[in-house]
């Protein structure tokens, strides 16, 4: 279980996180949504230990990750997978070498086993035949898939996705969502997905958290978020969905098109 406890973080006097708290149970994937610039990626980087908070704790399996020594933190991070917004593939390595990199550096597998594992992972993400390409030769969707393969090849316990579908066309967005859902089924990882792809993301997450004003304003199931009384959250969701998808409560007919769309999303 991961517990984010009262996290505060400022940049140059601007307080981005003002006591954000959230719990992620084992095997649970949480969608972290909220307006742009609210600090969702910052919160995600804190969970990965890439940033240190001004105050607050992140507890993973009973240990505060900011109290860990360098070696312990490095060991902990081996259990994390992180899909960066732009993939963050090593641009001097081919797709194959990028995916093989964690296996070569962190395991004692032979080159033959590594090859088998990497090719299998690339097949899973639909990148068979692209193993000799460099990141600069990949499209946005392919780069995300390659980065996902690299993040998953070490069978992580925790997966963190930083806007995995930003800048991609709707078909690729759908396929990335399907890929995350299927890999979650396969690996059973816990995870946080920072995304603006609403309601697509609700199809495979167990919980939704809304970061607003530096705090987690809402936590609930995807179904509950559509029923919340919190005006800010409702407005945000309404802004994210087409108008006919989420009419105001007073106007909503019992079996509206909105319900259909919501049910499809859930």
């Amino acid at each position: 279980m991961i517990t984010i406890d009262n996290l505060h973080k400022s940049f140059g006097g601007v307080e981005v996180l003002r006591g954000a708290s959230l719990e992620i149970q084992d095997g649970e994937v949480v969608a972290l949504i909220g307006p742009s610039g609210e600090g969702k990626s910052v919160l995600l980087k804190h969970v990965a230990g890439l940033m240190r908070p001004d105050s607050g704790r992140i507890v993973f399996n009973g240990k505060d990750i900011f109290g860990l020594g360098h070696a312990e933190l490095m060991s902990l991070r081996s259990r994390f997978g992180f899909l960066f917004q732009n993939g963050a593939l090593f641009d001097s390595l081919t797709v194959f070498d990028n995916v093989a990199f964690p296996l070569r550096e962190k395991t004692r597998l032979g080159e033959k086993d590594i090859r088998e594992k990497v090719l299998a992972e690339l097949k899973q993400v639909g990148l068979t035949g692209a193993e000799d390409k460099y990141p600069s030769q990949l499209s946005g969707g392919m780069a995300k898939r390659a980065a996902l393969a690299r993040a998953l090849v070490g069978s992580p316990q925790i997966m963190l996705f930083d806007e995995p579908t930003t800048g991609l066309d709707p078909i690729i967005v759908h396929s990335i969502h399907a890929l995350i859902a299927s890999t979650h089924k396969r690996f059973g990882f816990s995870g946080i997905v920072v995304s603006h792809a609403i309601p697509g993301i609700f199809a495979y997450v167990q919980k939704v958290a809304v970061l607003y004003g530096g705090v987690i304003r809402f936590v609930g199931t995807p179904k509950e978020i559509f029923e919340t009384d919190d005006v800010v959250v409702r407005n945000f969701i309404q802004g994210s969905l087409p108008a006919e998808t989420f009419p105001s409560r007073e106007q909503a007919p019992p079996q509206s098109k909105a319900n259909e769309l919501q049910e499809r999303a859930l």
């Binding site: 490095m74 963050a88 641009d91 964690p102």
Partner: peptide
């Protein structure tokens, strides 16, 4: 610098590598 701004250095850290 390019590795820093494209988060490749962060990616190394996430992989548990210094």
């Amino acid at each position: 610098g390019i590795m820093r701004i494209t988060e490749q250095i962060d990616a190394l850290e996430i992989l548990g590598l210094s």
